[in-house]
């Protein structure tokens, strides 16, 4: 099936560094579970046995931003929280991706009220907007696959000269 099948025949493969790097990157996306509210519970369910995010190589949920490359913002982001979310995003090493899980993070959703940020794209670059309130776990897995597809298309040199973000 995998690489080991090649070992029997030629013993080597040819590929590009880009393909190699993006394959490695997309097969082990370490998510930063930014579980803020209700969606965080569904995020927990994705980690559980039934939906099992480990099948996609993303079971390593790190609560420190420095070891993650995908931020799943799960839950309503208020103005007070937005500064925290942004700071954590800034602390993640490049390259990094963001899933806006649920309608609250995507557009403000059902919370049209004074403390809620109407869409986190006002202060964060977002790669995938995920519908649902909250999205079903299968839907989150779908989003993860889409992110993997997106990562698979990147080239290693795209991030070579990326400016360093200032963290504090």
């Amino acid at each position: 099936m995998g690489l080991e099948a090649k070992l029997q025949t030629d013993g080597f493969i040819t590929t590009t560094i880009d393909a190699m790097v993006s394959w490695a990157r997309k097969s082990a996306v370490w998510p930063m579970p930014m579980g803020i509210s209700c969606c965080g519970i569904e995020l927990m369910a994705v980690g559980g046995a039934k939906y099992d995010i480990a099948r996609f190589g993303s079971e390593v949920m790190r609560f420190t931003p420095r070891q993650c490359d995908l931020m799943i913002v799960a839950g309503t982001v208020t103005y007070k929280m937005s500064h925290v979310v942004r700071k954590i995003y800034d602390q993640m090493p490049d390259p990094k991706w963001v899933i806006a899980m649920g309608v609250c993070t995507s557009t403000g959703g059902m919370y049209r009220s004074y403390p809620v940020v109407q869409g986190i794209d006002q202060f964060l670059p977002v790669d995938i907007y995920l519908a649902g309130c909250p999205p079903r776990p299968d839907n989150l897995l779908n989003a993860l696959m889409m992110i993997q597809e997106k990562i698979g298309k990147t080239r290693a040199r795209d991030f070579q000269d990326a400016p360093l973000t200032e963290t504090n």
Partner: peptide
């Protein structure tokens, strides 16, 4: 207050029926 979503203010601005889905998300 990091998850203060203004539930009480929203309740004053919507009908009794409209508010039912919001109660789901209190103790989620």
């Amino acid at each position: 207050g990091y998850l203060h979503r203004g539930y009480e203010k929203m309740a004053e601005n919507m009908s009794y029926y409209e508010y039912i889905p919001h109660t789901d998300r209190l103790d989620y």
